[in-house]
């Protein structure tokens, strides 16, 4: 039997999320994010100019040549700033994650509710030494929390930290 503690608490002692400072992700993550979005938009843009150069007779409206580079630049800037705006906090019993530039979102998942944890990294992420960690909960696919842009070392540390916590909880019961 484990001991149940239930000491009385003052309402002001209850942890609040309103005054928490978030920890930013890896310093090179904004760069990776910008690069990824650059590559994503560069492919259609290059294809477009390629058509223009090799098949001059193709009729493409002038506007398109203007729109694509603008979208590319905008999305690169937004990705960069968006990555900068992301952050997380590891608390004693849960993990909080915030994201969003225009639509801001704060997510909280208690360690108690995590079913399992995945770490993945794509080729680009590996070059940067970064990883994506994903926490699965029982609320269906929409309820999974994904955090990109952690250094691989941090992601692994985070995973073992939380797994240990979950393990401790299970032993206690």
């Amino acid at each position: 039997m484990h001991q149940i503690t239930n000491s009385p608490r003052d309402l002001s002692e209850i942890p609040r999320i309103a005054n928490i400072s978030f920890q930013p992700l890896a310093p090179n993550y904004p760069l990776l994010s910008a690069l990824e979005s650059l590559i994503f938009w560069l492919i259609p843009t290059i294809a477009l100019f390629g058509i223009k150069i090799f098949k001059p007779q193709a009729e493409i409206p002038q506007l398109v040549f203007f729109v694509f580079p603008v979208i590319t630049i905008l999305s690169v800037v937004i990705s960069f700033l968006g990555a900068k705006a992301k952050g997380f906090v590891l608390r004693e019993k849960d993990i909080l994650y915030k994201q969003g530039l225009f639509w801001q979102k704060q997510t909280g998942v208690s360690f108690k509710r995590i079913q399992h944890i995945d770490i993945s990294n794509g080729p680009m992420e590996r070059k940067f030494g970064l990883s994506t960690i994903k926490f699965f909960t029982a609320g269906g696919a929409l309820a999974d929390l994904k955090i990109s842009g952690l250094t691989t070392e941090d992601a692994q540390k985070l995973r073992s930290f939380i797994l240990e916590k979950i393990g401790l909880v299970e032993d206690g019961e």
Partner: peptide, 23 residues
């Protein structure tokens, strides 16, 4: 609750409003 999300758009932020989603 499995997970909780608080989200707000810039306009909502200015008005001090938010959306709450409980999974």
């Amino acid at each position: 609750a499995q997970r909780v999300i608080i989200s707000q758009s810039l306009l909502q932020k200015r008005a001090g409003l938010a959306n709450l989603t409980v999974f």
